[in-house]
Write a protein that binds this DNA or RNA. Structure first.
Length: 304
DNA sequence: TGCGTTACGGTTGAT
DNA sequence: TAATCAACCGTAACG
């Protein structure tokens, strides 16, 4: 695949800050690579480029290429996992649900009473029993209206009417910033219009991650331009080498969560489209993963 | 030489 | 409000 070696150089991506790896590539420690690069890694792999060549070409460490491809093969997602945050340790959805129930039944109930009941009902054991302050926080933050309501107002309303006043705050319609990084593994509801995903396949949250490498480095426009060039190039490549099972620009078997990529659209745009919707897939580890699904038919499976 | 794995230093966000 | 914790990141190095 000599053609790949003619891809545009990324020398000009060197930022004002950030770090440069051994291959001369730019990265920000602790932050994911731009989705455009991640997408390119996957697509180059789809084109049959060896990971070592991808690594050299994109100046991304081979460990990273390996990781991204492995994740893609496993989950179908090119996106990084959810950075930051932590799983609820004691205030699990089940616990919250029970607390809400207790509060609905007895709006005047005290936090310490709820705590006792959680233990008595077997919802929690002594190891994962929330503290009184945790319960208070749940009541304040997640069941706020109910807690603030007087017993009479609360009792007057049917359970459904105030069952979830704040438990599921409305999902922002769109993330104005950095929808490039739609992080998986979230606790938010499936966005409207998209089917709920069962169990481990469900998307748990969409991170409005504060800074992508692209943004940090200020290279978004550059990568877009670069991607456009690259895409045009790969389109050319696809035309010349029709590869069964491999996506080409004109039979858009590359789709991002149902958003078919047009051959004239940049990968960046495709990812952006994708990330306005829910993600699918579980990234390994703690099950926090997921994110947008890059569906490429017949993904190449690694031999090992 | 290619690649999977892992230690490391870093970021992030919920608790 | 700050600290802690546990998730994630990519790189570098090893086998």
């Amino acid at each position: 695949m000599q053609l790949i070696l003619n891809l545009p150089s990324i020398d000009f991506l060197k930022p004002a800050f950030g770090e440069v790896n051994q291959l001369g590539g730019v990265f920000v420690n602790g932050r994911p690579l731009p989705n455009a690069i991640r997408l390119r890694i996957v697509e180059l792999a789809q084109l049959g480029i060896r990971p070592c060549d991808i690594s050299r070409q994109l100046r991304v460490s081979h460990g990273c290429v390996s990781k991204i491809l492995a994740r893609y093969n496993e989950t179908g997602s090119i996106l990084p996992g959810a950075i930051g945050g932590s799983k609820p340790r004691v205030t699990t959805p089940t616990v919250v649900k029970h607390i809400r129930t207790y509060k609905q039944r007895d709006p005047g109930i005290f936090a310490w009473e709820i705590r006792d009941r959680l233990l008595a009902d077997g919802v929690c054991d002594k190891f994962n029993l929330p503290s009184v302050s945790s319960i208070s926080r749940i009541l304040r933050n997640k069941i706020g209206n109910l807690a603030q309501q007087g017993p009479y107002e609360a009792a007057k309303q049917p359970p459904q009417a105030h069952a979830h006043p704040h438990a599921h705050p409305p999902q922002p319609a769109a993330l104005p910033y950095n929808h490039l990084y739609s992080y998986p593994g979230s606790k938010v509801a499936t966005p409207p219009g998209m089917p709920a995903l069962p169990g481990h396949m469900a998307m748990h949250r969409i991170w409005p991650s504060s800074h992508s490498v692209t943004d940090i480095l200020g290279i978004r426009s550059i990568t877009e331009q670069q991607n456009a060039e690259w895409l045009a190039h790969s389109e050319q490549l696809c035309h010349s080498t029709q590869h069964p099972g491999l996506p080409t620009a004109h039979h858009p078997s590359v789709s991002l969560h149902g958003v078919q990529r047009h051959h004239c659209a940049s990968p960046h745009a495709a990812v952006t489209d994708c990330c306005s919707g829910p993600g699918v897939g579980v990234v390994g580890g703690g099950g926090w993963g997921g994110g947008c699904l890059l569906t490429i038919h017949e993904p190449r499976r690694r031999g090992k």
